[in-house]
């Protein structure tokens, strides 16, 4: 299981990457492993507002659907449309398979660094 050092992490198992003014958000390796084979990703639309602590997307496995929570408040600047046709990339390369890029970030929850997040996962996760 990977926990890249250049990323920050939310307790609800999303990773974040700063990209200039944008924040890229995806699902962690631990989360994709827990969810199993992901078959579809429901993404928001560009221009939608996302709110810290609230669901902005969901991922479907064959027999389940799980909400993905936003660790920040802001506006969706880009969505990763490639995921719509290749949801398996969330399983295969979770840290490349970003979901959305957020701009105009006004709020951000307390995030964990890679070590703290790894420790959380080793305790069995929280969410």
């Amino acid at each position: 299981m990977e926990f890249p050092k250049n990323l920050t992490y939310a307790k609800t198992h999303e990773w974040l990457k700063k990209d200039g003014d944008l924040v890229e958000i995806g699902l962690t390796d631990y989360a994709q492993d827990q969810l199993g084979d992901i078959v579809f990703v429901n993404l928001p639309e560009v221009g939608d507002e996302v709110t810290m602590g609230e669901s902005f997307a969901d991922v479907e496995s064959v027999k389940a659907v799980s909400d993905i929570y936003s660790p920040v408040t802001g506006v969706v600047a880009e969505i990763n449309e490639a995921l719509l046709d290749a949801p398996e990339s969330v399983n295969g390369a979770p840290y490349d398979a970003w979901f959305i890029k957020v701009k105009d970030v006004t709020e951000e929850e307390d995030l964990l660094d890679a070590d703290a997040y790894e420790a959380l996962c080793q305790e069995g996760g929280e969410a």
């Binding site: 078959v39 579809f40 479907e60 496995s61 064959v62 027999k63 389940a64 659907v65």
Partner: peptide
Amino acid sequence: TLQAREQHIRREK
């Protein structure tokens, strides 16, 4: 297939 759309999985959503 595409069962995650349906009530037995998505329930009130």
